[in-house]
Design a protein around this nucleic acid. Structure first.
Length: 946
RNA sequence: GGGCGGGUAGCUCAGCGGUAGAGCGCUGGCCUUACAAGCCGGAUGUCGCAGGUUCAAACCCUGUCCCGCCCACCA
């Protein structure tokens, strides 16, 4: 422990028992989260008198129904790293947390719950239903927020917002009313995407097109009225013919010229269907060249109907069954209707064959149901102008998208944007602030207008969930009120999220942000990829490849893994699926091991090492294991340092790099400075992976592998000035490297930092920083270059030792030969260090090469001073020889096999082939090997004794 | 149909114009009083394929083949 400072002593005693030999993440991690909260580490201030620069990230609000998945873990990690980094750099950091009400998803969850009780929401009524949802939310909503604490996430929790909170609702209403008043929101009857399962309209984005579904192209004939002539059309949806109001052909298609202007007879309903010509709709090369036109249920046909003033006949009920317009087919659902229509056409001898055809199925993002285009009156938001402004804000750099490659995608979306259908036929959400009068009047207002009394009713629809999300960067700060938070924290610095919601959320925030706030909502958009399984497949319950991040943190046995991957499924079946998705840990699963407790820091570090340009992040649990080892390395290296620093006077630490003179001390501080620069650059450029890799490399490959090894002999005599300087350097580098790692691994670094000597200027938590900067290192490229030579020399000597099977305990005579005076000086200065790292005895430096004698092995390393030869005298030291060893191993193996065979022979029930023969063969081979070994040993002895 | 990204060591991935890298795995030696979750050695790749630019290409250009994702109203 440190010598002085009561605050530090108090904190250190908080830190729990003495450091154990192995790092136990759980034991350590549990200790610090509440400490950070108590110390106010996460707090942002909107006090106008605070002059610190701000750094703001709006947390993408997770769904209230959700529980933590790997995507959340990714998001939480990256954002927390950025927030902690900027916080340590002295910024006033706000990580604005929140929860999304998730209209459809939440309503579905609660409706399902009601169904178990045997009631529907309609029986309950709108108000009671809403109360039910709120109750559900209070009890089980927002689980993610609790889970995010386990990951060490550091948002300003007391500022948490829920999109349905009263103040958020005020913002939503305000935005709606303003847009309406500006003519940017309007009501219209249009062909929209309808989900018959959710019974609501959807926006274009909520429709997922499922490609490559094998289907069929069904052909049937329409007869010309009063004639035997016919025209054959092709369709993938025969049932929609009940809503056909025309058949279109290409005007220049000679096959059909004679039918232009003719009228066809609908076989099932009392309707005449005209033949029209349309060059836009019809591709004469496709199908039969004749297209049935269903304006009410197809986007192309809708446009065609508009061009030709065709009737739009809606044949579906809201639940997707056919309505009265379908005549004899009324009441059937779409699948049944399709079969029935085909059958009926066949019976009327109008069917004209079937061809296989690949088709794209539009599915509802939420329910998976097949979306039906329907004509419906809905609220729309005009997007074109706002989109243009949002697009140019990125083009002119007011907002930067990183990685840049996403700019094109963003642009393309905005360039082709359609008006946004914002009304949903749900009960859970922000009810539209519009009132309908008895005579069809519509009033839009912030509150129910006084003159809208009896006979007036509020529009029953609610807004698309994403409408409120689009206001997030300013609604959470108090808008439309002019709060100090809004003044301070808008625009946000970075918006970090997965690329999957670039359109849903990011683009819409850009549009609304600029529209309402006259400034972009954030200066940078940072996008990361999707976490997928080891084979590259999306994680889903269906595939059974979902990993619960907390299972990685705490560890999990196979049955728990199975339950989280495929809830409710038979464990063995689930594990079979799981192993297929994660081949690298299949063996561990089989052994019943599952996941070890990797700990939060290791999981975070792993996620942080994937570059953001990776669209797919294939999670390999084995990789986490590597970083768990790293955590252990940090733990033990720190233990070593702390043992040397027990009586170190921390007032020697000034908060700047110490001015050291010893070569190795200079080198490590220079190296530290380099790594700090690289890490800072990476963190600023959203290349967290580069920062993480550099910190890892520095800590393990420079600090542990070289510095701590080199300084061991120096510190063995602690009273020397050299040892004193080493301790000072060690204290500085330890404290600084913990700060360097803190944003990535907050728990272990806090634990160790609390025990480490540190400058008196430091605050109560490592999280307050400062983050390492240029003043923590020194510029000394000479030291780094010289160290490279040193490392190469040591490596060459070690290599010789190892290659020639020298007894590891034996000291070995070493000498060096070089023409360069600089090399001589370097080697001469570091002979003791080289000796300790190579067990080299009697080190000499020599210009002539006369040291060479029988049994001496040579290695040459190229250096800036020219080649240095490393000579290792092996005479009498080579106790073992590679070939001999190989023979020894072979003999050992045979002995083992023989033993097993003999045992089997002795036991009954040994039924395999001729065991005696096998044993004899083995014995003969053993004889041969033994004599070969003897001969070889004799000759080797001669060789080395020459 | 358009756009984006990827194909580098057995696996997961860095590198993106100058002698092929990391982690895990494999392998030889070492329980050296921080760490065996470790230490010291070692092996491993026609950098998808074919052309081209260059003194020099995994890296740039062209073509091509696979694999992902996104956008799009072709019946």
């Amino acid at each position: 422990m440190t010598k002085s400072g009561t605050a530090q002593e108090a904190a250190a005693s908080d830190a729990g028992p003495d450091l154990g030999k192995a790092y136990e993440p759980r034991e350590v991690e549990e200790r610090w989260y509440s400490f950070w909260e108590k110390e106010g580490v996460f707090d942002a201030t909107d006090d106008p008198s605070d002059t610190r620069p701000c750094y703001v990230i709006p947390l993408p609000p997770p769904n209230v129904t959700g529980s933590l998945h790997m995507g959340h873990a990714m998001m939480a990690t990256l954002e927390d790293v950025l927030i902690r980094f900027e916080r340590m750099r002295g910024k006033n950091t706000l990580w604005q947390p929140g929860i999304d009400h998730a209209g459809i998803a939440t309503q579905t969850v609660v409706e399902r719950q009601l169904a178990r009780e045997g009631i529907t929401r309609h029986e309950l009524g709108r108000e009671a239903f809403s109360a039910r949802v709120w109750k559900w939310k209070a009890e089980s909503g927002g689980q993610i927020m609790r889970q995010m604490r386990v990951l060490g996430a550091s948002p300003d929790w007391p500022r948490t917002k829920f999109t349905m909170d009263p103040d958020m609702s005020v913002a939503v209403t305000e935005a709606f009313v303003r847009l309406y008043e500006e003519g940017l929101i309007y009501r219209a009857s249009r062909l929209i995407n309808w989900c018959p399962e959710c019974r609501t309209a959807l926006s274009d984005l909520e429709v997922e097109n499922e490609e490559g579904q094998s289907g069929e192209l069904f052909q049937f004939a329409y007869k010309v009225d009063g004639s035997d002539e016919e025209i054959v059309v092709a369709t993938t949806r025969p049932e929609t013919m009940l809503g056909d109001t025309a058949v279109a052909v290409h005007p220049e298609d000679a096959r059909y010229t004679h039918l232009h202007g003719k009228v066809l007879v609908h076989p099932f309903v009392d309707r005449k269907v005209p033949v029209i010509t349309d060059a836009i709709l019809v591709d004469p090369k496709f199908g039969t060249g004749a297209v049935k036109v269903t304006p009410a249920h197809d986007f192309n046909d809708f446009a065609t109907g508009k061009r030709h003033q065709l009737a739009k006949i809606n044949i579906f009920n809201l639940d997707g069954t056919l309505n009265a317009e379908a005549g004899p087919f009324a009441g059937l659902d779409r699948a049944r209707a399709r079969a029935a229509v085909k059958k009926a056409l066949g019976e009327k001898e109008l069917a004209r064959g079937v061809k296989p055809h690949m088709l794209t199925l539009p599915r509802c993002q939420r329910s998976g149901g097949v979306v039906e285009p329907m004509i419906s009156t809905q609220w729309f938001c005009r997007m074109k102008d706002m989109a243009e402004v949002a697009s140019s804000a990125v083009k002119n750099g007011r907002t930067k998208i990183i990685p840049e490659e996403w700019e094109k995608t963003y642009d393309h979306f905005l360039d082709n944007i359609q008006d946004w259908c914002i009304s949903r036929q749900l009960w859970w959400g922000h009810q539209i602030p519009a009132w309908h009068g008895p005579n069809g009047e519509i009033r839009v207002a912030r509150t129910r207008p006084a003159d809208c009394g009896d006979g007036w009713a509020q529009d029953p629809d609610v807004l698309d969930t994403w409408f409120s999300s689009a206001l997030w960067p300013f609604s959470t700060l108090g808008w439309p009120r002019e709060t100090s938070a809004l003044a301070k924290f808008y625009p946000a610095s970075d918006l970090e999220t997965g690329y999957d919601i670039l359109f849903f959320w990011v683009a819409r925030m850009m549009m609304f942000g600029i529209h309402f706030m006259k400034d972009v909502p954030f200066r940078r958009v940072l996008l990361h990829g999707m976490v997928v399984d080891e084979t590259g497949d999306k994680m889903s319950k269906v595939k059974g490849n979902v990993i619960d991040p907390l299972d990685l943190v705490y560890g999990a046995k196979p049955d728990a893994i199975a339950e989280h991957a495929s809830p409710g499924m038979d464990v063995r079946q689930a594990l079979t699926k799981f192993k297929k998705s994660y081949p690298s840990i299949a063996a561990d699963i089989e052994k019943g091991v599952g996941f070890p407790a990797y700990g939060t820091d290791a999981v975070r570090f792993t996620l942080a090492t994937y570059p953001p340009s990776n669209k797919r992040i294939a999670l390999a649990p084995k990789r986490i294991e590597g970083y768990r080892h790293f955590a252990n390395k940090i733990w033990n290296a720190s233990r070593l340092c702390l043992s040397h620093l027990e009586s170190f006077d921390r007032t020697e630490l000034t908060g700047r790099a110490p001015a050291v003179k010893g070569f190795f001390n200079r080198w490590i501080v220079a190296q530290l400075g380099k790594s700090i620069a690289i890490a800072n650059a990476g963190l600023l450029a959203f290349r967290i992976d580069e920062a993480a890799n550099e910190a890892y490399r520095f800590f393990w490959n420079e600090w542990c592998d070289w510095y701590l090894e080199i300084t061991k002999p120096i510190l063995r005599t602690p009273a020397t000035p050299e040892a004193a300087e080493t301790r000072l350097t060690m204290a500085h580098v330890l404290e600084t490297s913990l700060r360097l790692l803190h944003p990535l691994m907050p728990f272990i670094t806090e634990e160790l930092w609390q025990r480490a000597p540190r400058p008196s200027s430091r605050k109560s938590s490592i999280a307050f920083g400062p983050f390492p900067s240029a003043m923590d290192g020194i510029d000394d490229d000479d030291a780094i270059r010289e160290m490279d030579v040193f490392k190469a020399v040591v490596g060459a000597a070690r290599s010789i030792r190892s290659e020639h099977e020298v007894d590891p305990k034996a000291d070995v005579p070493l000498s060096f030969r070089s023409d360069s005076d600089a090399a001589h000086a370097l080697l001469a200065a570091h002979l003791p260090a080289i000796a300790s790292l190579t067990r080299g005895k009697g080190l000499t430096i020599d210009k002539t090469g006369s040291m060479r004698e029988p049994g001496t092995m040579v290695n040459v390393v190229p250096t800036p001073h020219g080649p240095i030869e490393i000579l290792v005298g092996l005479k009498g030291l080579v106790t073992k020889d590679k070939e001999l060893l190989r023979i020894d191993r072979e003999i050992k193996r045979i002995d083992k096999d023989l033993g097993a065979l003999e045992k089997k022979m002795a036991s009954k029930g040994f039924l395999e082939r001729a065991p005696k023969e096998v044993i004899d063969e083995s014995r003969a081979l053993r004889e041969q090997l033994t004599s070969a070994r003897a001969r070889l040993e004799e000759s080797k002895k001669l060789a080395y004794e020459l």
